[in-house]
Design a protein around this nucleic acid. Structure first.
Lengths: 236, 236
DNA sequence: CGTATTATTGACTCCATTCAAAGATAGTGG
DNA sequence: CCACTATCTTTGAATGGAGTCAATAATACG
């Protein structure tokens, strides 16, 4: 018996991340229109690139599972980890300005992501009323995020590490993961590159938090034992 | 004799800043459509607010003359100057995400600006094909700017001050002002709040640059005597 | 002219870096 | 399974750059 064949590709319309990803502010009809243009579930292994700094800007991507890092090289040989990305988060907006990516996106573990090709963007903005607003909103979120990082850069090592852990915890929680136990997929070196500290200082600060009783640290596995205490480090 | 009365309001169509401001990527027809919605030439005095942190997001603004600073308060009493704004630069995108401004914009001297009301935005995006792209591009530029500030925050006091001066010099030059002599409208305190340094360190670093022969410093008036030398501080 | 604000300069302190060494863990191949 | 290696992490000691505290100087402003 003939039957309509359902497309089994996970699309935006039935994605569990639709509340935190691009579709969050769109109507069901709009999401369906968006869904058609999105290439979903591309998978990568640890260390693989989603895109490279300097590459021509050709897509905006959404992390579907796993995590990634945004790495920027300033030309003088210094690498900085701009951000760590979790499922539902969008990347690539930095490439719009000069039509090439301003940083590299690299998988920190096995990872799936979706792609919105840049060629479809202008058409989508015309066809889907809400999409321009949502894209701008996501950009605005990225601006806010960068700005709070700039502000955090003035603070002490303890505050930096505490803020990073709390921020990660909050974001994991809002995605349905445990807020108190998680794997930071970064080495101490990478944590340092993200926070503007040396790897030794990161190590010492984590050890200190463990001694106080705020954390249990086993290499990359972090257990937050006193979220409140950790929070007070930078609200005090 | 009856004659068409020309509107003498300076509008986007005949603004000298059209190559660096919002209209930069739009066709003449598109700029005319944009121009209708833009309220131009609002003037302020030193210290006045363009908008305040926490205010409802209701417009994107473009500096027309004079300069402004973006100030963010982190709630723990720390103020940070996110950026200094020059003619032709757009502000307010940070407000899109949460529908309220993430920082305050304050005039550093007598200042004129134009306003694009947020209510007109969605309509404009639909009516003017290029406008969504241009807005996104400006957001992307803001992201890139913030990201390079994050990276710069790791560097030494000398590098920070040198980068700030070079950056300002470049932007002034592209706007037709002198690249080698200008008035930084910020106090040492404010410079410090922008660069993540104390006012004393800023003062000492400027004095040092003067001793080397890179600068002539007379309070807020800066003369760059050796742009090349200044540049080498952070390219070396 | 007097006051408030802003800027400079010096001496001392402290936090994070640097340098160094040793320990822990994961992965590989015999 | 163990040995071997590479990578990552921890910890200690010494150093240094920017912060802090304090006093003075220069400028702006009513």
């Amino acid at each position: 018996m003939d039957q309509m064949v359902k497309d089994f590709n996970v699309s935006c319309t039935n994605c569990s991340l639709d509340e935190i990803c691009l579709p969050r502010g769109l109507s069901q009809q709009e999401v369906e229109n968006l869904s058609i243009e999105v290439k979903s579930n591309i998978s990568l292994q640890k260390g693989d690139y989603i895109y490279r700094q300097g590459d021509e800007f050709n897509m905006v991507a959404a992390i579907k599972s796993g995590s990634a890092k945004l790495v920027s090289n300033d030309g003088a040989g210094n690498e900085h980890i701009l951000n760590v990305l979790l499922p539902g988060e969008l990347i690539g907006f930095d490439g719009l300005f000069q039509n090439k990516y301003n940083c590299s996106a690299i998988a920190l573990e096995n990872l799936c992501y979706c792609v919105l090709p840049v060629g479809k963007l202008e058409g989508l903005c015309a066809k889907i009323p809400g999409i321009a607003r949502e894209l701008l909103k996501h950009s605005s979120e990225a601006i806010n995020e960068s700005q709070s990082q700039v502000m955090a850069s003035k603070s002490s090592a303890e505050e930096k590490v505490a803020k990073f852990l709390i921020n990660l915890s909050d974001r994991l929680k809002s995605r349905g993961y445990s807020a108190v136990q998680f794997n930071i997929c970064l080495t101490r070196q990478e944590l340092g590159e993200h926070l503007g500290l040396t790897l030794e200082t990161v190590s010492r600060t984590l050890a200190q938090f463990q001694n106080i009783g705020f954390l249990n640290v086993q290499r990359k596995l972090i257990e937050i034992k006193d979220l409140q205490g950790l929070r007070q480090i930078f609200t005090a």
